[in-house]
Simulated assay, not measured.
Amino acid sequence: MTNDRLAELLDRQDILDCLIRFSRGMDRFDRELFLSAFHSDAVIAAGPFVGGPVELYDWAASLHEQGQSATHHNLLNHSCEIDGNVAHTETYYLFVGRNRDDTNWMAGGRYIDRLERRDGPWKIALRTNAIEWSGMVPTMPIPFADVPGIHINGTPSRDRKDPSYQRPLANQRPLHMPGR
């Protein structure tokens, strides 16, 4: 019984890692990472789009590049039912985009996925995006943008120059405790 539970937990983690590859791949414009979350014959229904993963990446990246300077696809509550090599998941999400006109757009909903394990890794075979709300958020200045040297450790970017890809991660900023 313990080995079965351990195997299920490892599958659940692999499935969650797959969903995270989708989100990170989209936010960092990392095409390879994004596509690694899907089987090549996957079908995705997202807003007006219905098609495959390559076409989805091209469509979504173009929209985000044209409209936003930053995006965050945050994954929240996650349920997962595994039956052999097929899993059904429901993952709540919160999307936030910093628009090029300095407005902020938020949307929330759920990714409803069927994942399949084919010859190894779990990947999305079918996705539907249940968008449940959206709205604009008042714009405020980005905190600490005026701190000298704030980006010495790397400037946030939508590509592999982003500090999250730095290996090994290292701090280049001098120690500083405000108010001391």
Rank of each mutant, 00 (worst) to 15 (best):
N104W: 12
N74F: 10
H72W: 09
D17K: 08
R118D: 09
R167N: 11
R5P: 02
L16N: 00
V86G: 05
H73Q: 07
A42R: 05
S157N: 11
I152E: 15
P138Q: 12
E132I: 11
L126P: 03
L56P: 00
V137F: 10
F34W: 02
R31G: 02
V147P: 05
V50D: 01
L6Y: 00
R127Y: 14
P148F: 06
Q166D: 07
C80K: 01
R117D: 08
D41I: 06
P148E: 08
I112T: 07
A61G: 03
G52H: 06
R12V: 06
Q68K: 08
L63D: 05
R160Q: 10
E81H: 13
A42W: 05
G25E: 03
F22N: 10
R31Y: 01
S40A: 15
I15A: 06
V43S: 14
D159R: 01
Y57P: 03
P148W: 03
R167V: 12
F29M: 06
G47Q: 06
A87H: 09
A130H: 09
W122I: 12
A61K: 13
S69A: 15
P168F: 09
E90A: 14
I15C: 12
E55M: 05
D17R: 09
A61Y: 09
E8N: 07
Q66V: 01
H39S: 04
L126T: 14
R100V: 00
L169S: 09
I44D: 04
L19F: 01
R167Y: 11
A125C: 09
A37W: 02
M177P: 04
T155R: 13
A107N: 01
W59G: 02
D162Y: 03
A46H: 13
M1I: 01
T155S: 12
H64I: 08
S164T: 14
N3E: 14
N99L: 15
R24T: 07
D159G: 06
F144K: 10
F38T: 01
I142W: 05
E90C: 10
M136W: 11
D101V: 05
T155L: 12
Y165L: 05
A130P: 00
N74Y: 10
S69I: 13
L6M: 05
T155P: 00
P48F: 02
A145N: 03
H64K: 04
T2D: 01
D146S: 14
F49V: 11
L75S: 11
S134H: 13
F29N: 08
L126D: 15
N85G: 14
D30M: 02
M140Y: 06
G67D: 13
P156I: 02
R31Q: 03
P121I: 10
D17M: 09
E55F: 08
